[in-house]
């Protein structure tokens, strides 16, 4: 932590910087999902008390409150249900503009959030004209995969 006095604004402030390092424990479920991504596989878990299929996978079904059981591989294609174009990002985030979508992979009960390409970023354009909601999309894999969500580079329209 460093502290420096700031006398430039009207209200006196002190700059305080936190330097916290974390190692987030992935646990069994997400470890397996990440290993799947490295191998170009999208792995989901399912609940046998109901019929929900979770991707990203969950260790339990929040509705039945039972552990999920059984891994399955999902197709790399699905439907783009909705997206937003971030015209303005934030410190440390990706370079704007970028489009974040919610994709329902075939066979999944949940939506997978990821970047989508194929949007017209021209200012003033209707962002949904070139990429309407409901468009079929598929995963495009990163060349180098290290077991993280960006091993899928983004989703692109099919065909």
């Amino acid at each position: 932590m460093t502290t420096t006095a700031n006398t430039e604004t009207a209200a006196p402030t002190q700059a305080v910087h936190w330097d916290l390092h974390y190692d987030i424990h992935l646990g069994e479920t997400w470890s397996q999902f990440m290993e799947g991504l490295r191998q170009k596989k999208i792995l989901a878990t399912g609940c046998s008390s109901c019929v929900r299929v979770f991707v990203p996978p969950q260790a339990y079904c929040e509705s039945c409150f039972e552990p999920t059981d059984g891994w399955r591989e999902l197709p790399h294609e699905g439907t783009l249900e909705v997206f937003t174009v971030a015209w303005h990002g934030f410190t440390g985030g990706p370079q704007a503009p970028y489009a974040i979508g919610a994709i329902r992979l075939d066979g999944a009960s949940t939506l997978l959030m990821h970047w989508v390409v194929g949007v017209d970023f021209t200012p003033g354009a209707d962002v949904r004209e070139q990429l309407p909601f409901g468009t079929r999309v598929r995963a495009v894999w990163a060349e180098e995969r290290t077991g993280q969500i960006l091993d899928i580079a983004h989703f692109e329209p099919v065909g």
Binding site: H25, L26, G27, E28, T29, A59, Y60, P67
Partner: peptide, 18 residues
């Protein structure tokens, strides 16, 4: 140190207690 997501730990304890 547990090699688990926090929610996995919470679920295990609550599931057993119920």
């Amino acid at each position: 140190e547990h090699d688990a997501m926090l929610d996995e730990l919470v679920f295990e304890a609550v599931y057993k207690a119920l």
